[in-house]
Design a protein around this nucleic acid. Structure first.
Lengths: 343, 343
DNA sequence: TTGAAAGCGATACCAA
DNA sequence: TTGGTATCGCTTTCAA
């Protein structure tokens, strides 16, 4: 079964391959008409023949000739991670609406892996990349830019990179409102557990916490514990034990996994919130509703994050140099875990 | 900045493009040597030059000429869904190890959407497809086969399709052991809530429940409630209310979303497990640990499911007609939600 | 072991 | 509005 080519369609329709190409690439205007320099009747005939013959464009040929591929890449740290999995879906749908197919890749917070994925994608002539940068990936991003591949940074900022669009959460604000909620409810000895990942989003969430504590006059209570993916379970256990002894009253947990880990540990140790600790978690999840006491948490606007990043990328692809940074606001979902303690 | 082509490398290395092509495509044998009909020294020189010049293969050109693309597609119903997001990650990694890049797509349980995704992928010359079939997609799958594109069915079976590899969970067994756990702990009035999706996996889980109940002599207690994604919240509430009145003792919940929904509703209604109902849930999640009482649940071997599907697909791509069906076993994770009721 | 040359199927340029 | 044709970069014969 031979593949139907543009030539077959041209022959059958009695026109040149040029016309067929025009018709097949024409966009439908707002008036419902095809936007291309082809006679409407001819165009209709070509479409009919193409359909009858079961013609499908060969993307490889188109890409070879045009240098574009109608596909974009999304590189997050882990597509199985709650936050990125949620966003990916919105990216996928939005990209499809622009006519782009999406390659997904997971970097595992690892520069080498990120570079190897980019290498593969280079070969595929991708038209643009949405990437959640990892520590130390600046040069990889710069190489993309040198190859004139449009880039959008998602979720994490790289201050040293210019000429990229960015779609970020107002992470500082997230840290602030979480801390403020705790302060408002009478907690003073508020601590934070974070990852030492060297990425802007966590850094900003920490900054938000710190500045809020400072402004409220509790600078001396500021304490940020740092852990890693590998040792989080163990570290969290230790942190909680110490906190019990030290009279810590509350924790701000700036990611889903940290929140889950703390909640698991509290369950294990038979601690309850807000009696033993008040907590504010991060990202949307059923766990916040299902915990013994509902847990207050920050919610990120996944849909906007995903869709905006596609929009900015497409804008760059279509007209080079259209750079923009979008910072979206977090929402604080209240919960029993951060209300005033019974005295 | 012009793109470096195979020609540039050839000129610089003083050899023909043919040789460069050979070298760039050579696989490294077990002995660490390149497996290609090229002098080892020449090959080394070519590799060196290619690296110096920063050569990157143009996948579009290669694909156009060879008809293959070194990329595969994975179409699940929703990449943001816990189960598929988890599996995707394993697929991605395994595919990379075989040298394949992966396109992901979400069908939303919708044949039309699945077909539209396949159309796009057709254009991209994909070498194979891993797909979680949806109700009524048989003809779409058959079209793939006619185009000689290798297919692996994942998670759900289509009895009427021949000549595909399949990677499935032993869903009937999952239904059986869940039900048996409840029976073993003294529950008799066990019911099930399921989706009316017309897919084999749910059907089999239901069959497992039914046959287990029957064999235990409680056929008259068999009851399966069916709901839909759109109305699950509302339906579950109703089902639970009715169950309270009717003296239902336990529920088997064959998906994560059903489990979560039931748990949310129970929390809302201030019901506890196993006192009000015993429950057995599905898929791995923190919610089962964090609920007031830990919840027993079925765990699927995500890693095996993902990796095996890539393996079977690659085997088919490499030697056409190598078909195999793999059925993996579920694991039952016990929990307080299904232990004997205090009397 | 090496090289020359013929396409793969589209797009894009130029001419009509 | 239409058509002819060079060309994108690679793989793949076939011949040397």
């Amino acid at each position: 079964m031979k593949r139907i080519t543009i030539r077959d369609v041209a022959r059958e329709a009695g026109v040149s391959v040029t016309l067929v190409s025009f018709v097949m690439n024409a966009k439908v205007g707002e008036d419902g008409k095809l936007q291309c320099p082809v006679n409407a009747e001819t165009a209709a005939r070509v479409q009919k023949v193409a359909k009858e013959l079961g013609y499908r464009r060969n993307a490889a040929a188109a890409s070879l000739r045009s240098g574009r591929s109608n596909s974009i890449a999304v590189i997050t740290t882990d597509i199985a991670n709650k936050f990125f999995a949620g966003i990916s879906r919105f990216i996928e749908d939005k990209a499809a609406s622009y006519g782009y197919t999406v390659f997904f890749g997971s970097s595992d917070e690892n520069v080498r892996k990120l570079e190897s994925i980019l290498d593969t994608l280079f070969a595929h002539n991708i038209d643009g990349v949405i990437v959640a940068p990892v520590e130390g990936c600046e040069s990889a991003i710069k190489r993309l830019q040198e190859a004139r591949i449009p880039v959008v940074l998602l979720d994490r900022d790289l201050k040293s990179i210019e000429n990229v669009s960015k779609v970020l959460l107002d992470d500082k604000e997230a840290g602030r409102i979480s801390t403020q909620l705790l302060l408002d409810n009478g907690y003073r000895r508020i601590e934070m557990i974070s990852y030492s990942l060297g990425i802007s989003s966590l850094k900003e969430r920490e900054d938000g916490y710190v500045s809020c504590m400072r402004e409220a006059g509790y600078a001396e209570n500021i304490k940020i514990h740092h852990t890693t993916y590998a040792s989080v379970a163990e570290d969290v256990r230790g942190i909680i034990r110490t906190a019990l002894d030290n009279g810590t009253e509350a924790f701000f947990l700036p990611t889903y996994s940290l929140s889950a880990q703390v909640m698991l540990e509290m369950k294990e140790m038979n601690l309850s919130t807000p009696d033993d600790f008040a907590i504010v978690g991060f990202d949307k999840s059923n766990i916040y509703k299902l915990f013994s006491t509902s847990v207050a948490h920050i919610q990120q606007p996944l849909k906007e994050l995903g869709e905006k990043s596609v929009e900015l990328l497409c804008r760059q692809i279509e007209s080079e140099g259209q750079i923009e940074t979008i910072v979206l606001k977090p929402t604080l979902v209240p919960g029993g875990s951060a209300i005033k303690q019974k005295i």
